[in-house]
């Protein structure tokens, strides 16, 4: 009986785990949808900023700004975006691996780096690897707040303007589609002027001649930091969406795996129970035969 009972106990605990993973999958799905909506809503701002930048470029004003200047890197800032929680497949480990690559590269080039990490998982992993972190944040979850991102961004802009950093790389998980997300390193500073995209490019061609108030350069001075902040915000949003997708997929796989385990355990349990019953019948028959003789 002992074996069958142990199998039954295991089957029950696997069933409980399956309930938990199934719930986590559903929660991640709901959060993913919300995060995705936020990410889509934020796209409009970026595309309109880009459109204005193109209009400025078309007006003949040279796009010259300290944020666009590429200078030799003496001190690089690296911002790593990970999750606060695990159970999301390779999401955190991929980002951490990518960030270790970036940090290793800076070290081999003799460039000192200023490391900031968002997410408990990333903080503990980098601490374990002996990386000195200048900043860490644990407040970003599935709904990154623009104001909080703006504060971080303003800090980087000030440091860049003061010459304390010469470059900013953000390591995060880019969201391509539900089926594909990849850990990427994006250089946000110095800023790259954005490329025109499809519909916008056509719109620019047909667009009217604009007047600028007060003048194009002054608008450029304001628009480039805004463009930087919106890109940084996009990284946070992408990371949030990717984390939820990763958790959704991981929990779906865990639920399916638990289902398989339960099936296997049930089969073994039934077999054990059956053989036990057969054994007992044999014992009774043996006893009857013994009494007869």
């Amino acid at each position: 009986m002992a074996k069958a009972r142990a199998l039954d106990r295991r089957r029950r605990s696997v069933k409980n785990i399956r309930k938990i993973t199934r719930t986590m999958e559903l929660i991640a799905t709901a959060r993913f949808k919300k995060a995705m909506d936020r990410s889509v809503a934020a796209r409009d701002y970026t595309s309109r900023l880009t459109k204005i930048l193109h209009n400025i470029a078309r007006s003949g004003a040279g796009i010259v700004h300290p944020l666009l200047d590429v200078r030799p890197t003496k001190r690089a800032a690296v911002l790593v975006l990970t999750g606060n929680r695990g159970l999301c497949g390779g999401y955190n480990s991929n980002t951490i691996r990518q960030s270790m690559g970036v940090l290793g590269q800076w070290r081999s080039e003799g460039v000192s780096s200023h490391v900031a990490v968002s997410g408990k998982r990333g903080i503990s992993a980098l601490k374990f690897r002996g990386i000195n972190m200048a900043e860490h944040y644990t407040t970003f979850d599935d709904k990154p707040d623009f104001e909080a991102v703006q504060q971080i961004g303003a800090g980087y802009l000030a440091a860049y303007a003061a010459g304390e950093i010469d470059r900013l790389d953000v390591v995060y998980t880019q969201f391509h589609s539900i089926a594909r997300q990849s850990a990427e390193t994006e250089t946000l500073l110095p800023l790259k002027p954005p490329e025109p995209v499809g519909e916008l490019a056509q719109a620019t061609r047909a667009s009217q001649e604009y007047e600028f108030f007060p003048f194009a350069e002054s608008i450029l001075e304001e628009i480039l930091p805004a463009s930087f902040l919106s890109r940084l915000f996009k990284c946070f949003l992408d990371a949030a969406v990717s984390e939820q997708v990763a958790r959704m997929v991981a929990m779906k796989a865990a639920t399916e795996n638990a289902g398989g385990l339960i099936k296997d355990l049930s089969r073994r349990y039934n077999r054990a129970r059956q053989s036990q019953i057969t054994g007992e019948i044999m014992e009774i028959l043996g006893g009857v035969e013994a009494l007869k003789s």
Binding site: E211, F213, I219
Partner: peptide, 18 residues
């Protein structure tokens, strides 16, 4: 706008302002 109010109606000349 950065230096004061400005009203815009239909058909206003296109501009980009701070």
């Amino acid at each position: 706008l950065f230096d004061g109010q400005r009203g815009v109606g239909r058909g206003h000349a296109p501009f980009i302002g701070r």
